[in-house]
Simulated scan of single mutants.
Amino acid sequence: MPPGYATATDAAWYAGVPVGTLWRWASEGRVRKTGKGKQARYYVFDLVKAPRDEYTREQLAPGVAPPLPAGAKAA
């Protein structure tokens, strides 16, 4: 596996979003991925790290979406 790629579960945890959101971001081109199906891996350096360690639960905000590629439309 190339460096910087993680499973959907691990990448979603890193970003602080549900796995379905990560899948949507990948289909929109916001996050690079390699492989298909259960073998798919997502490039974590395209994601913004969730601030879970620095804040209390009440201060946490939902994950921030990476920007769309030029000319792409959101789902």
Rank of each mutant, 00 (worst) to 15 (best):
P2I: 01
P2V: 00
P2Y: 01
P2T: 04
P2D: 15
P3Q: 13
P3T: 12
P3N: 10
G4A: 07
G4E: 12
G4H: 08
Y5K: 01
T7Y: 02
T7F: 02
A8C: 15
A8M: 08
A8Q: 11
T9P: 00
D10A: 14
D10S: 11
D10C: 03
A11W: 02
A12D: 02
A12K: 11
W13Q: 15
W13E: 11
W13A: 14
Y14T: 07
Y14L: 15
A15I: 12
A15Q: 04
G16K: 09
G16M: 07
G16W: 04
G16Q: 10
V17R: 07
V17S: 12
V17F: 03
P18H: 15
P18I: 13
G20T: 12
G20K: 15
G20D: 08
G20Y: 00
G20Q: 09
G20I: 02
T21K: 15
T21E: 09
W23G: 12
W23C: 02
W23H: 15
R24F: 00
R24Y: 03
S27D: 15
G29S: 12
G29Y: 12
R30V: 11
R30P: 05
V31D: 04
K33V: 07
K33W: 06
K33C: 13
K33R: 15
T34S: 15
T34I: 15
T34H: 13
G35E: 12
K36Y: 09
G37M: 09
G37P: 06
K38W: 08
K38L: 13
Q39Y: 13
A40Y: 01
R41V: 06
R41E: 12
R41S: 05
Y42L: 06
Y42S: 04
Y42H: 05
V44T: 02
F45Y: 10
F45R: 07
D46L: 10
D46K: 06
V48Q: 05
V48H: 13
V48K: 11
V48T: 12
K49Q: 08
K49G: 00
P51E: 14
R52T: 12
D53E: 06
D53F: 01
E54L: 10
E54F: 04
E54A: 15
Y55E: 11
Y55W: 04
T56C: 04
T56D: 14
T56M: 06
T56G: 14
R57D: 11
R57M: 08
E58Q: 11
L60M: 14
A61P: 00
A61F: 00
A61L: 10
A61G: 03
P62L: 00
V64W: 00
V64I: 13
A65F: 02
A65P: 12
A65T: 07
P66R: 12
P66A: 08
P67W: 03
P67C: 03
P67Y: 03
L68K: 00
L68N: 02
P69M: 11
G71F: 09
K73N: 10
K73Y: 05
A74D: 13
